[in-house]
Amino acid sequence: MKRSKTMELGVGLFMLAGILGLVFLGLRVSGMTLNASGDTFRLEANFANIGSLKPRARVTMAGVTVGRISAIELDTEWYDARVVMELDSDLEGELSRDTTAAILTAGLLGEQYVGLSVGGDPEMLADGDTIRDTQSAVVLEELIQQFVSNMVND
């Protein structure tokens, strides 16, 4: 009888370890957050070219992650990309109206993310506003093309 109890304990620990492992894979490896979506606010930004930016990519400010990209869609009015970002609600009313958004790359081959930097406007961005001043992703082919055409002109 005692043997069966320790056996049950072992099996229980085994299953608990499996479930904890799954939680680890969810939180640490695939980077899901337990935060409810309630404490975020939305900002939009239009980019001429987003490169290979993907939904769920990071939004950073001075290198600190402050939010994630929730959706990317084509704006058929201007034919550019509209990027919807979910930012921490701490920043609501703290970002000036002339904040700029740029698409940056982590390292040479790393993932692309959005970097925000504040300006000096006294008016602040509110939930659902659009960032006007944006800088598109650097596309390597375009850079090479510019470089080659400059060489030809010289």
């Binding site: 894979l25 969810g26 695939s30 980077g31 769920r56 993310y113």
Partner: peptide, 12 residues
Amino acid sequence: NMQSSVEFLDDV
């Protein structure tokens, strides 16, 4: 890089 490329439903 791991967190930005691994999707919980698709990969795990």
